[in-house]
Design a protein around this nucleic acid. Structure first.
Lengths: 217, 217
DNA sequence: CCGGATCCGTAACGATACTG
DNA sequence: CAGTATCGTTACGGATCCGG
C-alpha cells in the first residue's frame, strides 16, 4: 500500500515526529549533518555499522519529509552532498537536549572501552552545555585538531555553530593535541598548560572559551 | 550475550540516549506516563497497537535504566502502576519540543481521517505551546471533559502540569464538550460562547486560559 | 479480569556483493 | 565514490495461554 509501514497512526505531535524520525539511525544521520553538509561516504564512516542500503533509504525518507536536502558543495569539489533543510535545523536544539540527557549516563571510559570515541561527538555536548550556560563564551572562531579529527567552533552574536573539517578562515585561536589530552582538558582534569598542546593565535581567548566549552556535569 | 542487542556502541550523548530510548514505542510510553502514573492495561489502551509482550519488555528496560519506576497507587485502588522516575521527568521538555515540532506537520483531519485522535494528546502540544509563550497563563486548576476523555491542567508558580483523569480537587473552572467542539475551540475556529460547552466555575479565568492554552501555530 | 509470558508469521535491519 | 540488489538475522505484531 501507499502508506508507510509501521507508523503509529496517531494524531499526536510526538507520534508524528517519531513516524518521521523514530526509525533506527535516523537521528544519528541528523547528528552528523548538524556539523555541516556531508557526502554519502562521510556519513557511512561517521555512523559505522549502518548499511549503505539503509543509509540510502533513510536519506530518501528524510528528503521526502523535507528535513534533509541535497546540496552541491562549492565548485572545487562539486560533488553531491546532504545537508539539513530548514525543517531539520529546527531539530538542532532538541538533538542537543537529548545529547545532554544521555551524556551524563555514558559509562566511564575504563568501564566500557568498547564504545567508539570521537572528539567531535563530545564537542557537540560541550557546545550544547555552553549554549545553555548563563555565562556567555568569548566570540570568535576556534579551530580544533584532535588526533586525526578536525572541527571548528564559531561564536558570534550569542549564537554558536560547530562544524567538522578545518576552519574555512584563519581562526582567532587554534589548538592541536591528542584525543586523550583533549578529553583531559575538556573535563578539567588536565590544565591547558600541561597538555603539550600546540596552540596558535589568541591564547587568552582560547582559555576563556574552554571555561564554558567543556564536558558537561 | 549480556550486552543489549542493536545498540550503537558510540560514546556520544545522543547515541546513548537512543540506546536507551530509541526503540519503537519507548518514547510513546513515556508520553503516556508524562500525564500521570498508569497501569499496564491503561498503557496498552493508550498505545493501541503495541503487543503486551513488547510493552512488558519496554517497561523492564526503562526500569533498569531508572527512567520509569513502579509506583503504588493510593489505597482505594492499591494496584501496581508505572510512573516516571526523576530521570524520566527530565525528558519532559524534550518530549514537548518534539511534540511541537511534529504537530505542525500532521496532515489535516480531512486529509487523513484514519489517524486515531485523542484530545489529551492535543492537550500535550497545547500545554507545550503555552509553556513557551511569553504571555503567562492564569493560575489555577482547570478540568476538561472532552467526549469520554478526562484530563486536568494545573498552573501555579509559572509551572504547569497536565494529568489524565478527573481533577483530584474541585477545579477553579471546568468545561465539558464534544471532541469536535473541543478542537474547534482550541484552534480558535469556534468561539467558546458558540460551543455549547457546559462550564462550571470561573468562566473569565477559563477564557483567559484558553488564550494561551490552544493549538499551536 | 488484570498482568503479564509464550509462540509464530512478517517486516525491518545488517552484511556483503554488485553496478554505473 | 555513490548508491542498488540480495539474503540471512533480528525485532516487532498479533494471538493465545497462564497464574493470581
Amino acid at each position: 500500500m501507499a502508506t508507510r509501514p509501521r507508523t503509529y497512526g496517531q494524531r499526536c505531535g510526538l507520534a508524528f515526529s517519531l513516524d518521521l524520525l523514530g526509525e533506527r539511525w535516523t537521528l544519528l544521520i541528523l547528528r552528523e549533518l548538524d556539523r555541516g553538509p556531508k557526502r554519502f561516504g562521510d556519513l557511512l564512516e561517521g555512523l559505522d555499522g549502518i548499511g549503505s542500503n539503509l543509509l540510502s533509504a533513510r536519506l530518501k525518507s528524510l528528503q521526502e519529509a523535507e528535513v534533509v536536502e541535497q546540496v552541491i558543495l562549492p565548485p572545487p569539489v562539486s560533488s553531491p552532498a546532504y545537508g539539513l533543510a530548514e525543517r531539520g535545523l529546527k531539530l538542532q536544539p532538541i538533538l542537543e537536549d537529548l545529547a545532554l540527557w544521555g551524556f551524563e549516563l555514558i559509562p566511564d571510559l575504563d568501564q566500557s572501552p568498547e564504545l567508539t570515541t570521537k572528539a567531535t561527538w563530545a564537542a557537540m555536548s560541550m557546545k550544547a552545555a555552553m549554549d545553555r550556560n548563563p555565562t556567555s563564551p568569548p566570540e570568535g572562531i576556534f579551530g580544533f585538531e584532535v588526533g586525526a579529527e578536525n572541527f571548528w567552533l564559531r561564536v558570534s552574536d550569542g549564537e554558536s555553530i560547530l562544524r567538522d573539517g578545518p576552519p574555512p578562515f584563519e581562526p582567532d585561536a587554534a589548538i592541536r593535541l591528542s584525543g586523550e589530552r583533549f578529553f583531559g582538558v575538556a573535563s578539567g582534569r588536565l590544565a591547558l598548560a600541561d597538555s603539550q598542546a600546540e596552540i596558535r593565535g589568541d591564547l587568552p581567548r582560547l582559555e576563556a572559551l574552554l571555561c564554558t566549552f567543556r564536558l558537561p556535569e
